[in-house]
């Protein structure tokens, strides 16, 4: 708390001299106070209110809301979606970072910008593009009572197997992959660029095969960055609302993910149940923050080691 040099000088009535690069105590206290009030009002209070409102009608009600068949079905759909989105984006992230960080080729900067693109697109627009591609009259859409002008084979295959993309699970998975697309790649690219390629070269000269080099040298070096990216990707995949809302169709028990289920409960003025389910996602957010802080620490240590 006290960064001013506090010499044990009881004889002096005045405080020790203040360092030139330190503000007067009243300014410090004011700024700390402002920070605590602002963050308390905007972060801590909302977080607490989620749990308090969730338990507003007692534990029994809380558990019945969370274990309601509709809630369970939403949880299941969210887990399925995440189980597709995170591993796929993980493979993509590692592949993209490998090619970008370990090799030189023209157009690299453009590629990095394109990878980041989904972050700057509104979630609603992210959902919309999949509706345009797969929805009625889309490029790969299902035409009702009509033949598709370009890909009739694909349409009849989907119809024969009774597969729906939009307003069904595949659409939700695709939209989720889109919004979580850059998370892992953008963590790994700078880390692997900083680490360079000499350790891999050393492994190759020592006789290691490409796979051995990748698994025994590259992966151990990037594991914290990878974990960090996976944590962020997972949080967003489980919590995505806007994009999924566009492609879902909102069929309770079928195409509602957890966030969509919360919306449905809220719209029915069933606030306590809505907050009960929301508290699950709030817990997820807290776990994410803890894991993220820990992985970030490890990742920064790896980056620092690379800079040595």
């Amino acid at each position: 708390m006290n960064a001013t040099p506090s010499q044990p000088a009881p004889a002096l009535p005045l405080a020790a001299p203040r360092r030139a690069t330190m503000e007067p105590p009243w300014v410090r206290r004011l700024l700390i106070g402002l920070t605590v009030v602002f963050l308390g009002l905007f972060l801590i209070l909302p977080l607490l209110s989620v749990f308090i409102q969730a338990l507003g009608k007692g534990l029994g009600y809380y558990f019945s809301a969370v274990t309601d068949p509709m809630a369970l079905s939403a949880i299941k759909l969210t887990l399925i979606t995440t189980a597709f989105a995170v591993p796929l984006n993980c493979v993509f992230g590692v592949a993209a970072a490998w090619s970008i960080a370990k090799f030189n080729f023209p157009g690299k900067t453009l590629l990095i910008t394109l990878i980041d693109l989904p972050f700057s697109i509104s979630p609603v627009v992210s959902g919309l593009i999949y509706v345009l591609v797969f929805g009625a009259q889309g490029w790969l859409g299902q035409y009702e009572n009509a033949e598709h002008p370009w890909f009739p084979g694909f349409q009849s295959w989907l119809n024969d197997h009774d597969i729906k993309i939009i307003y069904a699970t595949p659409g939700i998975v695709l939209a989720t992959i889109f919004v979580t697309f850059p998370f892992i790649a953008r963590e790994l690219i700078p880390l692997m660029q900083a680490q360079g390629r000499t350790e891999e070269e050393a492994a190759r000269v020592l006789g290691a095969s490409g796979w051995q080099t990748f698994w025994q040298v590259t992966i151990p070096n990037i594991k914290w960055g990878l974990l960090y990216g996976i944590i962020l990707c997972n949080a967003r995949a489980m919590g995505e609302f806007g994009a999924v809302s566009v492609v879902s169709g909102h069929i309770q028990g079928q195409t509602n993910t957890v966030p969509l289920h919360i919306e449905a409960l809220y719209d029915e003025y069933n606030f306590t149940a809505a907050f009960a389910v929301a508290s699950l996602l709030a817990l997820l957010a807290l776990v994410t923050l803890v894991l993220k802080t820990w992985a970030e620490h490890k990742k920064n240590a790896a980056l620092q080691a690379a800079a040595e």
């Binding site: 949080a235 919590g239 609302f241």
Partner: peptide, 22 residues
């Protein structure tokens, strides 16, 4: 507090939405 600053990143927007609304 430092760790909590990232809460708006980590908290799903729907949860933030209904919480702020209430």
């Amino acid at each position: 507090l430092d760790a909590l600053v990232d809460l708006p990143f980590a908290l799903p927007t729907a949860v933030a939405g209904i919480t702020l609304a209430r």
